[in-house]
Amino acid sequence: MQIFEQIAPLRTALTSHRRAGETIGLVPTMGYLHAGHMALVKRAKAECDRVVVSIFVNPTQFGPNEDFAAYPRDRDRDLAMLSAEGVDGVFAPTVEAMYPRPGATTVSVEPLGDILIGKVRPGHFQGVATVVSKLFHIVQPDRAYFGEKDFQQLAVIRRMVADLDMPVTIVGVPTVREADGLAMSSRNVRLDPGSRAAASVLARALGAGERQVASGERDPDAVVAAMREIISGEPRAELRSLDLCDAETLDAVERIGERPVVLLVTAAFGGVLLIDARTVAPPTQPSATGAASAA
């Protein structure tokens, strides 16, 4: 496994693979890896000839009062996990390598990046889109892999790639969860025992919302209210946002129809911000014509 801290050597190494006709998969991460990241790596290895994992805690996606300095880091542990998984290359640049001077160019995906979590974390998705765009230009992958837990992030990146005609296929990978349903996240390690136990309320709320939609509930307000009631019953949970949206566009849904919807939740536990999401396909309803024919 090769480790690169600078852009030019990585590009040189990947050029030879590309000339040999090998496909390249990229797994962008901020490090402090867990089983969820390894699921992305496994998927990339199954579908690509070469796999590069980036490890970079991107300062531009953190707000002034957010946890950039406190974000967990353990490079040696990360590298050991990736080596054991058979990753070909790791791109672990410094901030100076990625941002050698103040940037005059940013990538903003509007309004997709300004709604939902974008309201809670202004400027966050601009930072995400900009750094992912840079990674795509540096690595030039054929496929890039992202977890579905960060559902809005996945939607923003897909829209950026489509709008800017970037030659990369975006692959969403299902969320990996702890035994109690909590979505795996690098931030989970910062939860104290009480907050960690309380955080499982997010999975319970999402499960309740999923069951309501799957059973035929068509009123999004009723689904959100049921989820909100569950979360409000946990005193350690500081709910920041809770939404039911169209799974493709992230538009607000006035009435649940036949299109899949996504349930999105953001909450803080002991000052640690967690997000989670779950997509649900509503049950199909027979048409009036079909019902009449059956009768």
Rank of each mutant, 00 (worst) to 15 (best):
I55L: 12
G290T: 14
G127F: 10
V90G: 12
P141A: 02
P141C: 02
L191A: 01
M30T: 03
E178K: 00
E85P: 04
H137Y: 10
A291Y: 09
L14I: 07
D165M: 14
L206S: 05
I138Q: 08
V95N: 10
V189E: 00
A237C: 15
D74I: 09
P122I: 07
A155V: 07
M1Y: 06
P286T: 03
P174K: 05
A197C: 00
T106C: 09
R204H: 03
A155I: 11
A80P: 11
C245R: 15
K134L: 12
L239G: 02
C245I: 13
G181F: 00
A252R: 15
G21H: 05
R236K: 04
G233Q: 00
S293N: 10
F151N: 07
A252W: 12
T175V: 09
Y32F: 15
V262N: 05
T15I: 06
D88V: 04
V261A: 08
I157H: 01
G271W: 10
L26V: 08
P286S: 04
D74P: 08
V213I: 13
V223A: 11
S16R: 14
D246K: 08
T105I: 13
G127W: 09
S108Y: 11
I275Q: 01
M166W: 09
L135F: 03
S200N: 06
D243K: 12
Y99I: 02
L79W: 13
P59Y: 13
S293F: 13
G63N: 07
L10D: 04
M81R: 14
R187E: 01
K45D: 02
D163A: 12
K45I: 05
R259V: 11
L206P: 04
T169N: 11
I7V: 15
R77H: 15
T289Y: 12
T29G: 04
P283C: 10
M38G: 10
T279G: 06
I231E: 01
D251S: 14
R190C: 00
R121W: 06
M81E: 08
R255S: 13
R159K: 15
D163I: 08
L14K: 07
A199E: 00
V223I: 12
V109L: 10
R50P: 06
G103R: 09
G113V: 13
G25V: 01
V109G: 10
H17K: 08
R159S: 08
T284P: 11
R240M: 03
A198Q: 00
L135P: 07
A69P: 01
T130I: 04
A8I: 08
E178S: 04
C48W: 05
A292T: 14
A214Y: 02
S16K: 12
G118C: 06
G25S: 01
R190L: 01
S200Y: 01
H137N: 15
H34F: 04
A20C: 05
A13T: 07
L202I: 03
F125Y: 12
Y145W: 02
A225D: 03
T105F: 13
A292C: 10
V120W: 02
G209A: 12
V171T: 08
V262W: 07
A252N: 12
G181N: 02
E210P: 09
A292Q: 12
A205M: 03
A80M: 11
